[in-house]
């Protein structure tokens, strides 16, 4: 139940640990900026938003935009509602919250309690370990079972692509952190530092930046639905509405005035035959 960073301070000074944390934050910021510049994703994102605004059927007030932003936060960001696959959603929630608690408690443990003289509150010790554990459970579940390569394409779990840089460095960080805390072996500490440096320093080459652009994309999608531009998609009609029935007489003729819920058709089965 001891703070692993307080024990480490005998070998590495707390100042150096704090410098490493700040360096990692700067690497993430630099990686995200370079990634945006390279892919020009921000440029195209705003160009698309402007194009969508042109075909908007009504203008949204600032209040409506704020309420949509709050909805994006509570729905997509906090509960990962954009995932159709429930298992993938659960695994994402475990890795996301595990990561947040792990990183937050690491910063608190290093900045607040890395001096062996001060006692570490139990809550931060527990959050650090539980965060890493949750990351491991969600991450390994994803790696061995949920990934499309393994679950559907029939590829072996040990086939590695550059796209796996994010998940593997994330798993490495959490796994080696736990092993280091349990065994106290410096080998695991070394591997923990290598994995976390790859994780935070590899933003430019990995999908780490998705935590910034996914909420932006989800918010923009909500705006296009609310202002009527709908990315040029047709409206979602209420089949019991008399106006809709008058405009599309096939609906009441073949389906009746109050059509039942038809349930799921092809979407009853998960796609796993390829």
């Amino acid at each position: 139940m001891s703070n692993p960073f307080a024990e480490l301070s005998a070998t590495i000074s707390p100042g150096l640990m704090q410098f490493y944390v700040v360096l990692m934050i700067l690497l993430v910021v630099a990686g995200v900026i370079l990634d945006m510049k390279h892919k020009q994703s921000a440029k195209y994102f705003f160009a698309n938003a402007k194009k969508a605004q042109k075909s908007a059927k009504r203008t949204l007030s600032d209040g409506e935009k704020t309420s949509l932003a709050i909805k994006t936060l509570t729905s997509e960001v906090l509960t990962s509602s954009e995932f159709c696959n429930e298992d993938r959603r659960k695994s994402h929630l475990m890795t996301m919250y595990g990561f947040i608690f792990f990183v937050l408690s690491t910063a608190v443990l290093i900045f607040g309690y890395s001096d062996p003289e001060t006692s570490t509150p139990f809550i931060w010790w527990a959050l650090w370990h539980l965060g890493a554990l949750s990351l491991c459970i969600g991450g390994y579940w994803f790696w061995f079972k949920i990934r499309v390569d393994v679950s559907s394409e029939g590829l072996p779990w040990n086939r590695v692509e550059r796209a796996d840089l994010f998940i593997l460095s994330l798993l490495g960080t959490a796994t080696f952190a736990l092993l280091w805390s349990i065994t106290g072996a410096m080998l695991f500490f070394g591997l923990f530092i290598i994995s976390s440096t790859v994780l935070f320093g590899g933003v430019y080459w990995s999908k780490f930046a998705h935590m910034f652009f996914k909420p932006a994309a989800a918010h923009q999608k909500k705006i296009t639905r609310a202002d009527g531009s709908r990315e040029n998609l047709p409206d979602e009609y209420d089949l019991t509405d008399a106006e809709v029935q008058k405009k599309f007489p096939d609906i009441p003729e073949y389906m009746g005035k109050n059509p039942p819920n038809m349930g799921l058709g092809i979407k009853r089965e998960k796609p796993n035959h390829y």
Partner: peptide, 9 residues
């Protein structure tokens, strides 16, 4: 699917 319709724009 649940409404049993297809919409085109």
């Amino acid at each position: 699917e649940e409404k049993g319709t297809i919409a085109w724009r």
